[in-house]
Each structure stands twice: as structure tokens, then as C-alpha cells.
Amino acid sequence: MLTIVLIGTGRVATQLGPALVHAGHRIAYVWSRTLASAERLAATLPDAQAGTSLDMQAHPADLYVVAVPDAVIPVVLAEARFPSGALVAHTSGTLPLQIFASDKGLRSGGFYPLQTFSLGRQVDWQKVPLCIEATDASSEARLLAVAHSISQQVALVATPQRQALHVAAVFACNFTNHLLGISHALLTEAGLSFSLLAPLVQETVDKAFVHPPFSVQTGPAARGDEPTIASHQVALTTHPRWLELYKELTANIKAQTLKEAANNEEPLQL
């Protein structure tokens, strides 16, 4: 059992805290800019104190987890006072460990959960990939131990790979969700249920993890169905921004389809 301090009370911290407690760890202190937020999360964690002070010397711990938005992390690190030799890890998918470089007395690491978190929805932490990185072997071992205590998918991922993973995740998750939002709006306008798309979306996702996604691209852009593309564009004239997005994605699919076809051409037999 480790003693852990949670710095932040957002969507990541709100779900990470209970997962750590369930794994047998102790959350000693929860920090937030607003006391009410800290108290709300601390109330769900046995024996956790809540506060707005970043003087962590008053709260000794085996691990300090900084789970705040990326833009806030440098501010928090600049204001916080950690015990000498403390292990501090952020949950960012993009920030390098060099963000800790200004405080040479710290041991630092990354504890990046590759998942989307929403208030009111619980994730299964055993299935959440945890990407671990640290500046020294002992810190790496401790972060790995904590990660393995809550997840079955743990990997050492250096900063450049973690940053690439985050970009890919934005395409796979955030952009996909936005496109689903457009689909939802279009079906609502047509008086149709969004649930009609569920089997199609599920098959698309399932297939993408069996075959390279570009190789199984379908739809009017992939098959060069210009009449259908034209009719879609007419239907989207009342949504000019979505129309532009449709045109851009269609152009990208066409170009990628041509590239896939060229790569798959067998050389001529002479």
C-alpha cells in the first residue's frame, strides 16, 4: 500500500482516486483551487484530507499525482513545495518529463491513462492502458507497481511515443466523437433514432482492429461514387461548416484510396 496525494479534482482525478483506493492504496490529501471541489472528491476516499494549499511538505507521500489540465501543470509545479526527493508524476499525454527540470530535487514521471473520462460514467480501469515513464529506475519501478495494481494493460512509453499516441488518440476518439455528434444532429433533424447507427459503428470499429483501417475503407469516396457524393453535398448545404468538413474528408479518402491501390499493385511480369 502506498500513500498518494492527488493534485486535481477533474475527470481523471475523480476516477483515478477511487481506483487507487480499491487497489489498496491510501489517498492522504486531495488538492484543488476550490475547497469545495477538493472536499467533494476527498469525501469519496477514506481518510483523505482536502485543501487548497500546495505546500506538500505538510503532506508526505510515496507518490504525488498531478492530474490537472496540461496548461495548468507548469503553474502548479511552480507554486508547489514538495519534500526533497519526492516522486511527482503527471497524467499528461503531451508534456515531456522536462517540465519537472526546474526542480532538481524531485524524481519525476508520467502516468498517462489512455482513456476518455466523462462525469457520470465509470471506466473499467483493468482495461485502461497506462503509459509509464520515469527519470530513474526506482521511480519507474514504483510507477509500474502502482499502474499494475489498477490495470492489466501497462507499458513503458517514452515521451516522443506518448506524444504520438496522444495525437492518434485525438483522431480516434475526439474527432470520431465529433463526427458522431454530427451524425446524431442530422438524424435528429430527420426524425430518426441515432441508435440505428450502432451496428454500423460497432462493425466499423471491430473491423478496424482486425485489418489496417485504410485497407478496408468503404463508402462513396472510396468507390468514386460521384453522384452520391454530389447528393450528400446538396443535403448539407444548410450546414456549411459540415459541408466543408465532408468535402475535406472525401478528398482525403480519395487520395488515400489511390495510394492504397498504388501500393497494392503487383509489379509487371516481364
Rank of each mutant, 00 (worst) to 15 (best):
A13G: 06
Q15N: 06
S183C: 15
G17Y: 02
P83C: 07
V66E: 03
V5L: 00
L165H: 08
L180I: 13
V68E: 04
H90W: 01
T94W: 04
H178G: 11
L35H: 14
D47Q: 14
K104P: 09
D136N: 13
A23K: 01
L196P: 03
T250C: 11
P96I: 07
L243W: 09
P199E: 11
A36M: 12
W125P: 00
A190Y: 04
A61R: 02
G85M: 05
L6G: 01
A101L: 09
A147N: 01
L179H: 06
A155N: 07
T116C: 11
H211R: 12
E39N: 08
G120H: 03
R81S: 13
E140M: 15
P96N: 06
D47F: 09
T135Y: 03
A67W: 01
L87M: 09
K207F: 08
T9V: 11
E226R: 12
V66L: 06
Y112T: 10
R81T: 15
A145P: 03
P199W: 12
P267H: 04
S84L: 13
S139I: 10
D103E: 12
F117L: 03
A262W: 04
Q49P: 03
L196M: 14
L54D: 06
T159W: 15
H59K: 09
A19M: 09
W125Y: 04
L87E: 05
L243S: 08
S151W: 00
E203D: 12
A67P: 02
Q256V: 13
P220L: 04
H22L: 13
N252D: 11
A36E: 15
A222V: 13
Y112W: 14
A221S: 12
S84D: 15
V201P: 05
G120C: 05
Q153L: 10
L270I: 14
R162N: 05
A38C: 11
L6M: 15
L119F: 11
P220A: 09
G224F: 08
A261N: 11
V30R: 00
G10D: 06
E226N: 10
K207G: 08
L258Y: 07
S84A: 15
F111W: 02
I229G: 03
H148G: 08
E133H: 00
V76G: 07
R33S: 13
L16R: 02
M1R: 12
E266F: 13
L192Q: 13
L186T: 11
I73F: 00
V5P: 00
A50V: 02
F214V: 08
